[in-house]
Nucleic acid binder design. Structure first.
Lengths: 336, 336
DNA sequence: ATGCACGCTGTTATCGATAACATTCCGGAA
DNA sequence: TTCCGGAATGTTATCGATAACAGCGTGCAT
């Protein structure tokens, strides 16, 4: 009687190919010293049995898995969500699986518990989507020999970081509005503890100062359309406001509605530029000029930094910066 | 000389507590036959050494991991993205990690390779976010003894499925428009091969027929604002169109813009109802009446079905249906 | 011819947990 | 007192891979 067929192990392959299991292992790991002919025989046996190596056994003896852990804020924000899928894609191509661990808030204890879960799984490396300074505290929770890459993190952390050049993006947006003839540009920022926000504020301010334009007071918000709407209600009351740069597209959406309600027409009376280029941005009223970030490039850069660390035994503190670019649509015009 | 401190193993804990490693294992797995006093000693030793069990070793001997694989379409669509984070949260609470595998298209070969990657990882179970019939073909790629739950899949598949009651959601939306006094309701659907779309179409049609209202021709689209806009351009030209139900909020956004461009005011001239309740929907122009799906409930239901399968050895073909509900805002009014 | 290096392959130890079985200890019934 | 049963604990085998080392030809230098 045959028992329930369990999935074949290395020794089964070895027996079929007429070699030892160690030779099978060598074939699997592309070791040089295997005769071409046996290599072929082994591969044939693998195919015939539909053998797949047991990762748990491998992880046990080598001490490392083929899993990469991602720590991200629990949100459906366009940026982080895009990052995640792009990263998963890149990792899959490199033969790694991705385990996600989301957090409601990026405070130290939440991050600690997610990092813990990942360490439990013995991940081979970690990616932290660290948009706020508090997230950088995750460092404290991570053993020194664990490969880590931060996305959107603080370059000064001494750990590898991949970021989008927020300053350049904000400069392009602000510049674009000034070039259209506006005397100055108002800015509705994201939460000020986010690195993204900080960079965009900095780029906006720099550009105004360099152009000798007045720097209006900063309005800060979270990333939601709701807060954009609130900020918009104020801005709409001030006749001197003719150009607004918002830290993301959803804020811009809220602002567009507030302007609409007070009959300030876009772009005739007020020009608006967003950030992110969410897929719907082209269908706002009016279509939104915005800044697009290359999430795919960020993801691939992060993966390659991580793989680098996994190969070498030391940590290089690289910092890769990915440039964004302006997408021009109909929400910007010349001032009256 | 002390070597580089490797992370402690079960025997280290055992030595410190003065018991055998097997007793430690029993404490860890909450076996009944351990004296309370030793249990306490062991726990203390675990805490002192900051010991964490090696999942690879456990997986090796038990044959199952603490990993759940999710197969999802590679997209930043609100629905799937929300599902994923909600599911991850629920799984984490139950002590499982989640490995994501995204696909560009839900065709058989893409799904096959993602399922393969998950099998490589020896996942303990699979969740397939199967919005289209083609995704159900994934079944063929999955071994019969692997616990699987489909989300949004076909209840007729004979496998456990969790769905949102799309028909009921569409009925509520359509009913709401009829109740406002509209003679009939037009519908812009999602891709017709999605189960979600099919359900929403069915609910819409049923409600019209039951009310004795004319059933206008169906407009179908993908899920994007772009196609909503195109559909809107047509609908805006037809004076008899006073009420539109769209299969998601982004389609509605595109339609709102098309209506706006042709000076058909919402809700004065035309009423619009969406589906999803994306966070921005309250800030569209005007705020969108829509149908909210309880993704959290779906995720938790899916997890519990999966855990059920993992405990029992047989597959129960349950079908859990989660009701959606209507969120009333300003985009619906009485016809002129 | 001898010896040695190297290419190729096999043998054995090992990782860290759980499973199965063995042992000890204790209290209560005969 | 003796014996028995079950709770508490220990011992040994096992999962399936890689690492380390050992063995065996073969070719080439001496």
């Amino acid at each position: 009687m045959d028992k329930v067929t369990r999935s074949p192990a290395m020794t089964d392959v070895a027996r079929l190919a007429g070699v030892s299991h160690q030779t099978v292992s060598r074939v699997l790991n592309d070791h040089p010293n295997v005769k071409e002919q046996t290599r072929i025989r082994v591969r044939a046996a693998i195919a015939e049995l539909n053998y797949r190596p047991n990762r748990a056994a491998r992880a046990l003896v080598t001490g490392r898995s083929q899993l990469i852990g991602v720590v991200a804020r629990n949100s459906t924000l366009y940026g982080p969500a895009s990052m995640l899928t792009e990263f998963e894609q890149a990792a899959a191509d490199a033969g790694f699986a991705v385990s996600v661990g989301s957090v409601r808030e990026l405070d130290r204890s939440s991050i600690g518990s997610v990092v813990d879960r990942h360490l439990d799984q013995r991940v081979a490396g970690l990616v932290v989507i660290a948009n706020t300074a508090s997230a950088m505290e995750a460092l404290a929770e991570i053993p020194g020999d664990m490969p880590v890459v931060f996305i959107d993190g603080d370059p000064a952390s001494g750990r590898p970081v991949v970021t989008v050049d927020q300053v350049a993006g904000a400069r392009a947006a602000t510049r674009h509005l000034l070039d259209a003839g506006h005397r100055t540009v108002w800015h509705v920022s994201g939460p000020t503890d986010w690195f993204d926000s900080a960079g965009r504020i900095q780029g906006w301010r720099q550009t105004l100062e360099e152009a000798g334009a007045e720097v209006p007071p900063l309005l800060s918000a979270d990333w939601s359309a709701a807060e954009g709407y609130r900020a918009g209600q104020m801005l709409a009351r001030m006749p001197e406001v003719t150009a607004i740069f918002t830290a993301n597209d959803h804020l811009a959406l809220g602002i567009l509605r507030a302007l609409y309600e007070r009959d300030r027409r876009v772009p005739h009376d007020v020009s608006v530029v967003g950030f992110d280029d969410v897929p719907e941005a082209a269908y706002f009223i009016p279509p939104l000029t915005t800044v697009r970030q290359a999430f795919g490039d960020v993801a691939r850069a992060a993966l390659s930094l991580l793989l680098g660390q996994m190969r070498e035994d030391f940590t290089t503190a690289d910092h890769i910066v990915v440039p964004p670019h302006l997408i021009e649509r109909a929400s910007v015009g010349r001032p009256a």
